[in-house]
Design a protein around this nucleic acid. Sequence first.
DNA 1: GACATTGTTCGATGTTCGTCGATCATAGAA
DNA 2: TTCTATGATCGACGAACATCGAACAATGTC
Lengths: 106, 106
Amino acid sequence: MKTTHHPAVAQLSLPTVLSALGDPVRLRIVRSLADGRELGWGELTVPVGKSTLSHHLKVLRAAGVTRTREEGTRCYVRLRLDDLEQRFPGLMAGVLPAVVAEAGEE
Amino acid sequence: MKTTHHPAVAQLSLPTVLSALGDPVRLRIVRSLADGRELGWGELTVPVGKSTLSHHLKVLRAAGVTRTREEGTRCYVRLRLDDLEQRFPGLMAGVLPAVVAEAGEE
DNA sequence: GACATTGTTCGATGTTCGTCGATCATAGAA
DNA sequence: TTCTATGATCGACGAACATCGAACAATGTC
């Protein structure tokens, strides 16, 4: 595919991370990944077209929230929980429960 | 001044809160308030004009992150920590340390 | 009443964002 | 090689956003 760029741990920016999380569609993606599992692209069920999904995954990736692994023609996504914990200790521990709890509200 | 509107606890939305926090200027405001103190409008030193500051405070207020109290011609701002804890337990406990830690990086 | 202070609102400008359909590049299958 | 499936990229659109200066409203002071 392409050289999917992932920022280094030291370069993760808090406004960028929070801004990436501040969108309903992306928050829904994060919720799907909240348990740490790696999911295939197609398993991310969001109510948008695939070009839009690709865009949102790019935003999450650029913010350092997710890591995309390519395997053949398909790719897999997971949260960068360890990296985020290293850069912003406790952040995701505070955010993820709220993200998961938000599931039953919509 | 005006009828400054504050959303009820049950109406706080996670994407809205995170989105409100996902801006450098607003994050700087939140950092000033991180210890729970109430600050006067003028004590919020951010590198923007006053109309822009007013706008950012409105965004934070509308998201339910801050509460504005008016007293005469001047007003005071503070975080709605209790309300946020009630609606999203642990969220601010995870976010605020990262916000404060971010202080020495810029 | 006249003036000063404080913060909001308005209008405008340039930028960024979310969304889509269409196209393209890559890797695997027939 | 040809076809197919997977995602990324492109171009475009309208909406939302950050910013500013100027004008405004409300309160306090002289």
